Amino acid sequence: MYYSTRFLSLLLLAGFACSQPKETSEVITADSTASKFANAPLVEHIYTADPSAHVFEGKIFIYPSHDIETEVAEDDMGSHFDMKDYHVFSMEQPGAEVTDHGIALKLEDIPWAGRQLWAPDAAEKDGKYFLYFPAKDKQDIFKIGVAISDRPEGPFQAEPEPIAGTFSMDPSAFQDGEEYYLLWGGIWGGQLQWYEDQKLVEGRKGPTDGIPAPDQKAFMPYIAKLSGSMTELAEKPKEVLILDENGEPIKAGDNDRRFFEAAWMHQYEGKYYLSYSTGDTHFIAYATGDSPYGPFTYQGNVLEPVQGWTNHHSIVEFEGKWYLFYHDTQLSGETPLRNIKMAELTHLPDGKIQTINPMK
């Protein structure tokens, strides 16, 4: 979702495709930088990130976070990602005009929330639409909430309390037949490292407090089946194991492959695909399994690093083709001010995903 100037500087030294905030008042436009990017921004009138895409009512609907300029100081917990509302976008088909349906949910309309409306997702059941979103509560702890609408574009009405049993951030909804699941989790600013046995540990405050040693099992995302109402968990959350080629859990020091945030699930030809961001190494990686609960075996990368510190995505099928939605910083050159994009995604005959390069 985020992160700090200190980490950004380290990555620049390492040669990653990142960019610092510009020290000039010159306006950066998509046209002036388009030559090095493989795909154009979908939205240019506001900053958008973390796009969750779904096909509802025969159209592609996109549920991103809404980046804004803020006076909040940067830190390693992502406080400068101070988003305050959500917009919903739609397009009739890839390449068509993108419609901004306006504000779908505002921070002040969520009774339990204190700040930071980070990456959301959505689901539909029986003609109702459900927006799942993370926010810090009044004690500054991330929880996951849900809001409901009769329309895919909203507006959405938030439930008065967060979903019991949830913690951390980056909720992602997955439908498998008649069953619906919620995935979530993220380390560092996502606070997953502050929990043990799904309970908050007192005294953990920093981005690395509770992070395992490099040779220990990495943190994994969580999954739980949703109840029939779609507003509660139907079971205790379970850890989703991501394994290496030897069947061992990915280690915390395996930064190129370990889970950091942004879990997303899709199904293709009977296999379940779990994709996720590796965070400080900037890949969208993926693993495959035979059940939504896993275990999943690491397979490779969906997306190479983008310009900007963060990476967050979704994968959706539309009219027989698959698409990856992601973000970068083409419009602003600044990590907290991102723009959403899309690219066609290819599943290869052996079930692997052809890696996408976001740069030309």
Score class of each variant (00 low, 15 high):
residue 164 A to D: 12
residue 316 V to G: 03
residue 278 T to L: 03
residue 131 L to G: 04
residue 88 V to M: 01
residue 20 Q to G: 09
residue 41 P to E: 06
residue 212 P to S: 13
residue 212 P to M: 11
residue 200 L to Q: 09
residue 256 D to V: 05
residue 278 T to C: 05
residue 292 P to A: 04
residue 54 H to P: 01
residue 92 E to S: 13
residue 244 D to N: 15
residue 192 L to N: 07
residue 259 F to K: 05
residue 200 L to G: 07
residue 149 S to Y: 07
residue 172 S to F: 14
residue 63 Y to N: 08
residue 92 E to A: 15
residue 169 M to A: 07
residue 205 K to W: 06
residue 347 H to D: 00
residue 325 F to D: 01
residue 344 E to L: 06
residue 34 A to F: 04
residue 342 M to T: 11
residue 209 D to T: 06
residue 35 S to Q: 14
residue 351 G to V: 04
residue 284 I to Q: 08
residue 288 T to M: 08
residue 154 G to F: 09
residue 263 A to T: 06
residue 241 L to C: 02
residue 159 E to P: 02
residue 214 P to Y: 06
residue 189 G to W: 08
residue 338 R to H: 03
residue 174 F to L: 06
residue 9 S to M: 11
residue 247 G to K: 05
residue 84 K to M: 05
residue 184 W to A: 08
residue 174 F to W: 05
residue 9 S to L: 14
residue 110 I to V: 15
residue 354 Q to P: 02
residue 80 H to D: 09
residue 103 I to V: 15
residue 315 I to Q: 10
residue 280 D to W: 12
residue 26 E to P: 00
residue 271 K to S: 10
residue 215 D to W: 13
residue 186 G to S: 15
residue 345 L to A: 09
residue 86 Y to P: 13
residue 312 H to Q: 04
residue 279 G to R: 05
residue 72 V to T: 14
residue 252 A to P: 03
residue 314 S to P: 10
residue 21 P to D: 07
residue 225 K to L: 03
residue 210 G to I: 08
residue 257 R to D: 00
residue 349 P to H: 11
residue 91 M to Q: 10
residue 252 A to S: 15
residue 140 D to V: 03
residue 32 S to E: 10
residue 30 A to F: 05
residue 294 G to V: 13
residue 227 S to G: 13
residue 146 V to Q: 08
residue 319 E to P: 00
residue 284 I to Y: 00
residue 355 T to A: 01
residue 29 T to Y: 05
residue 155 P to Q: 10
residue 308 G to C: 06
residue 209 D to N: 10
residue 335 T to V: 02
residue 70 T to N: 10
residue 281 T to R: 14
residue 118 W to T: 01
residue 311 N to K: 00
residue 329 T to L: 01
residue 210 G to L: 08
residue 314 S to M: 06
